[in-house]
Design a protein around this nucleic acid. Structure first.
Length: 502
RNA sequence: GUCCCCAUCGUCUAGCCUGGUUAGGACACGGGCCUUUCGAGCCCGCGGCACGGGUUCAAAUCCCGUUGGGGACGCCA
């Protein structure tokens, strides 16, 4: 088996929906930590809440991890020596450990019903006191137990905190790698439930049993779990085993108000960003910088650099707001760095989804043309999805003149006549490529003594419908002579039609 | 309410441990240059140590308090 000093970390997502950005960030920190230290990254599915867990959610989470490029050494699909890695398949294990604790006097059966508990809670609330389970069932006689059983009551199992800790006094201290030592008074804890009456373990218990059995060395998780940690330490105590090291990383926030990131603040699912055309490299880079920093100048890190540089000592303590502006900037940086061929590959699904191309119809010749179009778009895309807005007119003649284009550039004195002249000019350009096209058009502008913009923009609107886009000469070349002339003709007719029938 | 955590430009952060910086960078924003548009690029600018007390010759940095925000207090995870 592995060296005893081998780093083993895990993420334990609950498959109740999509992969949340906050979870992705936690996963990333764990993954980077494992890779940096040459350890193991483990995925364990925390599906003990049967009601809310689903197969699809498991798949969504694994897909998101894969898309982001985080591979796991042990877990679903890959297995491993400490499996199974799905908690609902480990029920016997939890029951066995819970039973051991009961037998050792560290836990006990509790027959209090939900209703009774609620009543006690309500009572405590009325008197303005915090509710703590009073230990009613701590010392049940066999007869009492039998009576409850006969009544058909299904017991929960509670940890006997005093027995687990060995005293009613003292401080539970969490030696946190990010926050430092954090102390909790044992008195604050009541005998909390570790096994539900339906035989399922409670989060804190399943987590501890699995982390122990899976030889987890470092628990790196969001700081919202800090207050669970003393309870878990109590369970480790009861089990008589050493707890792992803990590191609570700051949460990902949704606004400067400091609230936890949620749907209210925008998209939180990793899948959404993928579908929107964000690159996994950009997401990784962005997520890594949320709560972690390397120095005072570097912003862009490749995955390799992150692995090399990441460690817990440079993780901050305060929460970080998810800022889509910065993500957008990063994403653009990564798109710009992509080699043309790769960028073309990346953009094809988006063109396809918009109904502009069909993958199976891409001949080598069409592929070359596509690459040229992507090249012409250059560094204008923020997300891959932007390709559609920048290029749809290359693929279809079905477009309208934008309001601004019409008003500002086409509806001007002499434009139809000018377009007519440009059309004739372009008809004779040989060869029909950007250099020659530019020379001809600039010659025209100069001959007329016009400002370039007053000629180029109307042409742009006439042939693309838009006021913004790739360079005009490339656009004309890529459109080809026939379509360019056709679109000029169409614009001329359109404009004449308007003046004749206002 | 109780316990716990946090606090540097609007945002991400460096600096804090080991007091002395014009408190640095990046995104965003504003302006300029370049340019056929947009984008990119370049230049300039705006903007911050939550507050109050200490300690000290000197505090973003050390100590105490206040305020603000957040998290946890479930047979959710």
């Amino acid at each position: 088996m592995g060296r005893t000093d081998e780093v083993r970390v895990r993420i334990a997502p609950a498959p109740t929906g999509h992969m949340h950005l906050g979870n992705a960030r936690t996963a990333l920190f764990n993954w980077l930590f494992a890779r940096h230290h040459g350890g193991k990254f483990i995925v364990r599915i925390d599906d003990t809440d049967l009601e809310r867990s689903s197969e699809e959610a498991v798949k969504a989470i694994l897909d998101a991890l894969r898309w982001l490029g985080m591979d796991w050494d042990e877990g679903p699909e890959v297995g491993g020596p400490y499996g199974p890695y799905i908690q609902s398949q480990r029920l016997d294990i939890y029951r066995e450990y819970a039973k051991k604790l009961v037998e050792g006097g560290k836990a006990y059966y509790c027959y209090c019903t939900k209703e009774e508990l609620d009543a006690m809670r309500e009572e405590a609330r009325k008197r303005g006191r915090p509710f703590k389970y009073p230990g009613k069932c701590r010392n049940l006689t066999p007869e009492e137990r039998e009576r409850f059983e006969r009544e058909g009551r299904r017991p929960t199992i509670r940890l006997n905190v005093e027995a687990a800790w060995g005293s009613r006094e003292g401080k539970i201290v969490v030696h946190d790698l990010v926050l430092g030592d954090v102390e909790f008074d044992v008195k604050e804890f009541d005998d909390f439930i570790i096994m539900k009456s339906n035989g399922m373990p409670v989060y804190n218990f399943a987590t501890v049993v699995d982390d122990y059995l899976m030889r987890i060395t470092h628990v790196i998780r969001a700081s919202e779990h800090l207050s669970n940690t003393p309870k878990q330490i109590l369970i480790y105590k009861a089990l008589g085993v050493e707890p792992p090291k803990f590191a609570h990383v700051p949460m990902v926030l949704g606004s400067s108000k400091g609230e936890k990131l949620s749907k209210r603040h925008g998209a939180v699912a990793v899948e959404w960003y993928r579908d929107q055309g964000y690159l996994p490299e950009a997401m990784i880079n962005f997520l890594a910088r949320l709560g972690w920093s390397y120095d005072d100048k570097e912003e862009i890190f490749t995955v390799e650099e992150l692995i090399e540089k990441f460690d817990l000592d440079r993780v901050g303590r305060s929460g970080s707001v998810f800022d889509i502006n910065k993500l957008n900037w990063l994403n653009k940086q990564y798109i710009m760095m992509m080699p043309l061929s790769k960028r073309t590959d990346a953009v094809i699904p988006f063109l396809e989804r918009a109904g502009l191309i069909k993958r199976e119809e891409i001949t080598p010749e069409k592929r070359r043309w596509l690459e040229k179009i992507v090249e012409a778009v250059g560094d204008r895309m923020t997300t891959l999805a932007d390709i559609v807005d920048y290029t749809y007119f290359f693929f279809t003649d079905e477009f309208e003149y934008s309001e601004e284009g019409l008003r500002k550039w086409l509806s001007k004195e002499g434009v139809p006549e000018m377009l007519e002249e440009v059309k004739e000019l372009l008809a004779g350009v040989e060869p029909f490529e950007r250099g020659e096209i530019e020379r001809a058009l600039r010659g025209y502008v100069e001959g007329k003594g016009l400002k370039a913009i007053r000629v180029f923009q109307p042409i742009r609107v006439a042939i693309t419908g838009k006021t913004v886009g790739p360079g005009l000469f490339e656009t004309i070349e890529l459109l080809g002579r026939e379509r360019t002339l056709g679109r000029l003709e169409r614009a001329i007719r359109f404009l004449k039609g308007r003046t004749e029938n206002p």
